[in-house]
């Protein structure tokens, strides 16, 4: 695997914290396969102690970007750095990875397997086995550790895959669609495991096409559509970037159409409720008074667009349907 060229590039968008806290930095990454542009000038960063969600429809370029971090894809252009230096063997030893294409040795015992992958990261044998046993215990797999992987259920195999990525106490965790195929209990376990990692200062980059999960789990997110980063930042940043605030008004048995009294750009409406996008200088007191004039107001909510609405605004309705909750 050749090293990735290091090019001096401006600070990537979506790097809200100071450069000193940024551990992984991807700058201006591009990759095309023949006529297809898989990744187009993607820049993103993963700061210390933060969980970054990487969101986009299938085929948006998430996996290509993540595989580039490990040299599994050689980009046509761009740089990937770790603490300011190009990613090399020393950095790779500090990373944990869960590929989108899950796969382990089917006939290898799971303790041996987790320890083996830790040793491939340069951990000595004794430590690797001890850490493997600890991590399997924490994932409720201690009593299965002498069994070959193929004897385990699909869900438990997923846990072993997670154990492999966590066993070296990585400083950067890169998880490609880690929530795919997990039951709600496992989702909570994984969420807790990720939180534990960032609490000790690691960075996490995970991809997903499920907006509700991303909103719940991540500190920051990067939205990628057709190979390009379209928005990045905290969830609030992204919701704000979608445009004006949304005003939701609900009236019990209104005496006149709500659309006549609540003015703004209509987002959605029913007979007793309406959602409109409004400008920042809208006088909310006046709108509330007008709403009261047609009935009892049961709900009056002024907020940023939901992440789903924001995503629709960013990606367009067609692609947004693919990432619907």
């Amino acid at each position: 695997m050749r090293r990735i060229r290091f090019l001096p590039v401006p600070d990537p968008p979506g790097a809200p914290t100071g450069q000193t806290d940024v551990m992984l930095s991807i700058s201006d990454l591009s990759k095309r396969y023949g006529e297809i542009v898989a990744v187009d000038s993607v820049s993103l960063s993963v700061p210390r102690g933060r969980i970054v969600g990487f969101v986009g429809p299938n085929g948006a370029g998430k996996s290509t970007t993540m595989r580039s971090i490990f040299g599994l894809v050689e980009p046509d252009h761009g740089s990937i750095t770790w603490d300011g230096a190009p990613v090399g063997p020393a950095a790779l030893a500090r990373f944990g990875y869960m590929p989108e294409q899950r796969g382990l040795y089917p006939k290898m015992k799971i303790l041996d397997q987790v320890a083996f992958f830790a040793e491939l990261k340069g951990v000595d044998r004794a430590t690797a086995r001890r850490r493997a046993a600890e991590i399997l215990a924490s994932l409720d797999l201690a009593d299965r550790s002498a069994e070959p992987l193929e004897k385990l259920s699909h869900g438990n195999q997923q846990r072993v895959q997670l154990a492999v990525s966590l066993a070296t106490d990585p400083e950067l965790l890169v998880l490609d669609e880690p929530f795919n195929g997990l039951d709600p209990v496992a989702v909570n376990t994984l969420q807790r495991a990720l939180r534990e990692r960032v609490e000790v200062g690691a960075g996490v980059l995970f991809s997903s096409h499920q907006l509700d999960l991303v909103e719940r789990v991540c500190d920051e997110l990067v939205i990628i559509v057709r190979g390009r980063v379209r928005a990045a930042g905290t969830v609030t940043d992204v919701r704000r970037s979608a445009g004006r605030h949304h005003l939701t008004v609900e009236v019990d048995r209104p005496t006149a159409p709500l659309g006549d009294v609540v003015t703004g750009t209509l987002v959605s409406s029913t007979t007793r409720s309406v959602v409109v996008a409004v400008d920042d200088d809208t006088e909310l007191d006046r709108v509330l008074a007008q709403a009261r004039s047609v009935g009892t107001v049961t709900r009056f909510e002024y907020d940023l667009p939901s992440l789903q609405d924001a995503f629709t605004a960013i990606a367009g309705a067609d692609l947004a349907a693919e990432v619907a909750a």
């Binding site: 063997p89 030893a93 041996d112 340069g122 951990v123 430590t127 106490d169």
Partner: peptide, 24 residues
């Protein structure tokens, strides 16, 4: 924060793979 990791040399990588192959 630092994990129990180090860098792995080519020689060590080859030995680890060979050992796994032997055991398997």
């Amino acid at each position: 924060m630092s994990g129990p990791t180090g860098t792995i040399s080519s020689g060590r990588a080859v030995r680890l793979i060979a050992r796994r192959e032997l055991q398997a």
